[in-house]
Structure formats: structure tokens, C-alpha cells
């Protein structure tokens, strides 16, 4: 039974042009593919399918014919192109890993709530990342560095399972040159690793910041977030100023498909960045506590 007559509506995609249908991705080309770690690649796409976004927001990336998945944007808003760091995991990420420059993918976004830039003005900032969890922190860090004089001291604690899994290694030096206190750690050392060995909570006490006023942003695997939050409170960082970016399965990115509805929050519209006390209201399993 055909109820309704379809009429054809051609357009080039993207939210503005459509105005209406948020589910249509905009086709863009892959410009560069870079090996970040053995299992992660950073793809650069352009031109940017949307103009403005806040660091910490995500976009839905479509590999036509394969599927769609949410990824944190890992390039700063000032960049003309858009970057995503993608770890090979399921069918979509595998297809992206197999893609090469010139291939077409679909992007829609930006979605969700990013890091609280407004709150950060003139304050000290601590970024705590674990593994691929540094992806949503990188646009924040680069944005802070571009507007260095507006913010206080910036410290980064970054850990990974092994040295080769640390992302953006070639940028560390540049960050430090611009005044970032960078502390690195790995769970298991290898090769000529001379740095700290241990989980990221073991280096959290190293940065010397104005703890009561510091804004802390963290992202990583759920178990890491759990212990980082605990440690931060122990170290007397103010709960008021702690934020974490959580992950969840998503299908629509705009709060309709129900996959990321936990408690009274949608990770896709109320998150992925949540405040400490908001995380406490999330149900078991999703809440890092």
C-alpha cells in the first residue's frame, strides 16, 4: 500500500540549505589522512561544512553505504578545515581507515554542548586526557593558545597505555613552547620512554595551579574519568569547576533517536560535556561514579 506520493527534492545537503531536515549529511572531501597512532588516524576534511562550533562539540560522520557515527571535532574553530581523530573499532571507523584523500564522506553538525569557554576567562585551566580521549581536548587547547592572553595558566595531564598510543606527539613541543605545562604518563613504558609510568591519576598532583579557581576538563575511557574525578576532589579542585566529556551510542545527534537518553539527559544535546553535579544525576552505568 502506498500512502503518499513521493516528490523529488534535490539539494546539495547540509543543514542551512535544507533548513528543515537535520538528518541529511553534507558531502565533503577528505583532504589528508595522517597516522596518529597504530590504531588511530586523523583525517582532515574540507571545506568546513559548517562555520562555527565550540571546542568539545561533535559531528556525525557518514561513510556512504556503510553507516554513520559521532566523532569529536579535534581541530580548532579557527581552522578552515575540519579534523577528526578516529580509532579503528567498528564498521564505520574501519571504512574511514580504508579511505584515502579525495574520497567523499558526509558530515552533519556541529552537535552537543562543548567545553564552557565563557567560564574559563582569566582562570587557570587543567586538561586531563586518556588515550583517544584527548581528541575533544585538542581543539580546546589550540583555541586557548590562540587566545593565550585571555586565560591563566594552562596545564595538561595526558596518559595512554603505551608511548606509541599518545596522540599528537609531534605537537607537544610546540604546546610547551607556548607555555603549556605538559605532564605525560604511560601505563606501560616501551622503547626509550623516560617519562612517568603509571595511570594518569598519578600525575594529577604535579601541575601547580590555583586549585579553587581552576577549570578542569577531562575526557577518556569511563574508568579513567571515574578515578580522575575522585582524585581531583581529593586534591581539592572545586566540584563546581570540573567538566568531563562522556561518550555514548548515537544515531541522530539531535535528541530524537533515544539511544543516548540517560536519566533526563541526552548525551547528544545536553552533553557530551557534563558538569560534575550533572554526572551525578545520570543513572548507573552512564554515571562515572
Amino acid at each position: 500500500m502506498r500512502l503518499t506520493m513521493p516528490s523529488r527534492n534535490r539539494h546539495k545537503g547540509g543543514v542551512e540549505e535544507m533548513g528543515l531536515n537535520p538528518y541529511i549529511p553534507k558531502p565533503v572531501k577528505i583532504i589528508r589522512v595522517k597516522d596518529e597512532t597504530p590504531d588511530t588516524k586523523t583525517i582532515t576534511i574540507g571545506p568546513k561544512p559548517f562555520d562555527e562550533f565550540t571546542p568539545g562539540q561533535f559531528a556525525m560522520v557518514t561513510v556512504y553505504g556503510v553507516g554513520e557515527a559521532p566523532f569529536s571535532i579535534c581541530s580548532p574553530p579557527s581552522d578552515n578545515n575540519l579534523q577528526f581523530s578516529i580509532r579503528k573499532m567498528g564498521s564505520v571507523t574501519t571504512a574511514i581507515h580504508e579511505a584515502s584523500p579525495g574520497d567523499e564522506i558526509g558530515v552533519r553538525g556541529p552537535y552537543g554542548r562543548g567545553w564552557p569557554l565563557g567560564e574559563m576567562r582569566n582562570r587557570d585551566i587543567l586538561l586531563v586526557g586518556g588515550g583517544i580521549g584527548f581528541a575533544p581536548l585538542r581543539p580546546l587547547l589550540l583555541h586557548l593558545l590562540e587566545n593565550r592572553n585571555k586565560y591563566g595558566r594552562i596545564a595538561v595531564c595526558y596518559g595512554a597505555r603505551s608511548p606509541s598510543l599518545l596522540m599528537y606527539r609531534d605537537e607537544f613541543e610546540e604546546w610547551m613552547k607556548q607555555g603549556v605545562d605538559l605532564y605525560l604518563t604511560v601505563d606501560v613504558g616501551e622503547g626509550d620512554w623516560k617519562g612517568n609510568v603509571g595511570v594518569v591519576t598519578t600525575i594529577l598532583d604535579k601541575p601547580s595551579l590555583n586549585k579553587a579557581e581552576t577549570i578542569v576538563c577531562t575526557c577518556g575511557p569511563p574508568v579513567m574519568i571515574k578515578f580522575v574525578l575522585k582524585k581531583l576532589v581529593e586534591l581539592e579542585y572545586s566540584k563546581e569547576n570540573i567538566y568531563a566529556s562522556l561518550e555514548s551510542k548515537m544515531r541522530c545527534g539531535v535528541g530524537k533517536c533515544g539511544h543516548c537518553h540517560f536519566g533526563s539527559k541526552h548525551v547528544c544535546i545536553d552533553g557530551p560535556v557534563f558538569k560534575y553535579d550533572e554526572m551525578a544525576t545520570l543513572p548507573k552505568g552512564m554515571s562515572p561514579f
Binding site: N9, K12, Y23, Y64
Partner: peptide, 28 residues
């Protein structure tokens, strides 16, 4: 009748470079 069990979201023609969605206009 409002959310079919299976519904087309879009068709994307890679060679022609455009995305098409279906609009349904008949009154029910």
C-alpha cells in the same frame, strides 16, 4: 502511519554529487 517501521531518509548519488530526500505530500 507517522513513523513507518522502515523509512527512507535519503538517497545519495555519488556520481551526480547530490543527495535526495523523499517528500510525501498527500493528505491523510
Amino acid at each position: 502511519f507517522f513513523m513507518p517501521q522502515r523509512q527512507l531518509v535519503f538517497k545519495h548519488y555519488p556520481r551526480k554529487g547530490f543527495t535526495e530526500e523523499l517528500k510525501e505530500n498527500s493528505s491523510v
